[in-house]
């Protein structure tokens, strides 16, 4: 799957994303997302920083640019992280292209 950096992504209605004590917890709503009843998803620190920008309005280019301005990391690394996370969440039906 190739992602367009101009695309905008939003959280799928098949999941509910919650923030509990600073952790992003993604709770499946529809069947087929979590394969076990007591398993939910959470994001690591990098994932959280990216997730917080995926608001259904910013394009991936915008997200990459904003993170590059906020973090002292090479822009290639940030781009790799953003595209990697979004690709994974799209495959898991957690994110959808707007």
């Amino acid at each position: 799957m190739i992602l367009s950096r101009d695309a905008v992504y939003t959280v799928s209605e098949d999941v509910v994303a919650r923030e509990i004590e600073g952790e992003i917890i993604i709770v499946p709503l529809m069947a087929g997302i979590g394969d076990l009843e007591d398993e939910l998803y959470t994001l690591n620190e990098t994932g959280k920083a990216i997730w917080n920008k995926l608001d259904g309005r910013r394009s991936l280019n915008d997200v990459i640019a904003e993170l590059a301005a906020e973090y002292q990391a090479p822009s290639g690394e940030i781009e790799r992280d953003v595209l990697g996370l979004v690709q994974e969440l799209v495959q898991r039906r957690i994110l959808l292209a707007v």
């Binding site: 979590g34 007591d38 398993e39 939910l40 998803y41 959470t42 994001l43 690591n44 990098t46 994932g47 990216i50 992280d81 990697g84 996370l85 994974e88 969440l89 898991r92």
Partner: peptide
């Protein structure tokens, strides 16, 4: 996955 973890609550 380097970003997403499936967690047992």
């Amino acid at each position: 996955s380097p970003y997403v973890a499936k967690v047992n609550v």
